[in-house]
Nucleic acid binder design. Structure first.
Lengths: 212, 212
DNA sequence: ATCTTTTTGTTTAATAATTAACGAATTAAT
DNA sequence: ATTAATTCGTTAATTATTAAACAAAAAGAT
């Protein structure tokens, strides 16, 4: 048996994730089929792009009827989700870390929030939102023992670098860096960075410059 | 006198914002000059791209010496910052809103955090981190009176749509939407959306698929 | 002084991403 | 039945973004 498993473009992966969330909402509302142009409209995209993304992941719709919502959710799951799940940890349980934690609970069963890390004695040694919180010094053991693959860094900027180093030497394979400090990681670690200040400055720039 | 003021590519604007943050750190460390390849390295970019971005904003370095850090910070400021500043509001002072608020204080003088909005009576009617917090029902008056141009939406997803509508009808010109719900805005409002779950799913996908 | 090295600034080429174009299929209407 | 209208799937064209290439300038070495 032959399994096609090419690498999808990063942009397509992002959009599939976004589509899925919308599709889950559609399903809740009892919608059985959805057209490419409907999905496009909901995401400020073109219908062609939606169809192309769907094509790239190897899924098919029905001419004149659109895509079966339930099946498409499963198809996206086949792409984005790891069969046996992937374990996730958050380092830095301040407001941002807590926001993600809350955001997260119960949403993505294949991404298992497995451990939290902080330095604050009031947070460590207990569960927060049902997830055990450890001291950052325990990163090596816990990451290895619990087979944590993905780390989210939400520590204060001055600790970003050493946090990344700890996660990396503990054997993490992906990092989402939400601090303002760009990180360096070895080739075999996938790094995604996002900075809200940059987004905000972009909004400031374009909202100012684009208006006539 | 002739002022060149073309629209920069979105990607360049993002990078300029990122460069500036790094440059500010360099300045603090007493660094007077920086080479394009140094800046590139710090941001996982190529030196060519850095030079190109700098060129696009009309700034120049010194051959063999690099770019004068202080001047470049100012040059980026001329592009990204509005001379008289732009007023910003956050709607939804939960963990995410609070994280942004903290993140923000004292960092960008040209983006003035002017008002916060929430529905919780414990938060409204007082200052949080030195910024007055109002009930969301007051959005129309406050946005207009205080000339707020940019709104950050960090409310629970089910309120995202109506929050956006309120901000828009109050005359906002840019929105940063950090909820999971994609929004629709009229043409004259600039919209930027970011979803952490999508970032995380991207990390999950690529960290899994790229490893050999 | 001349040569070598380094680094900027800019043009040209390559790559990636998006959009357009259009055939094939399906449904509904006449 | 035939026709008209949609909508998918895919290839081709376009546009945007990134990288390569290289001349010019400056500094340092010989």
């Amino acid at each position: 048996m032959f399994m096609k498993m090419e690498l999808l473009p990063a942009k397509t992966v992002e959009r599939l994730s976004e589509y899925r969330r919308t599709l889950i909402n559609c399903l809740k509302e009892g919608k059985e089929f959805i057209y490419s142009h409907e999905l496009a409209r909901l995401h400020h995209k073109t219908a062609v792009q939606v169809r192309r993304d769907i094509m790239l992941m190897g899924f098919s719709g029905i001419q004149r009827k659109g895509y079966r919502v339930k099946e498409m959710i499963d198809a996206i799951g086949k792409i984005l989700d790891c069969k046996n799940g992937q374990n996730v940890a958050i380092v830095g349980i301040g407001h941002l870390g807590t926001a993600i934690l809350q955001y997260f609970t119960g949403k993505r069963p294949k991404l298992k929030m497995t451990a939290l890390f902080d330095v604050d004695k009031n947070k460590t040694g207990r569960e927060i939102n049902g997830i055990p919180c450890y001291h950052v010094d325990e990163i090596p053991e816990i990451v290895e023992d619990k087979n944590i693959e993905i780390g989210i860094i939400t520590v204060p900027p001055e600790y970003a670098k050493e946090t990344a180093e700890r996660l990396i030497s503990a054997g993490i394979s992906g990092i989402l860096n939400l601090t303002t400090i760009p990180l360096n990681v070895p080739e075999d670690v996938y790094l995604e960075e996002y900075d809200m200040i940059t987004s905000l400055e972009k909004v400031a720039y374009f909202s100012r410059v684009l208006k006539k």
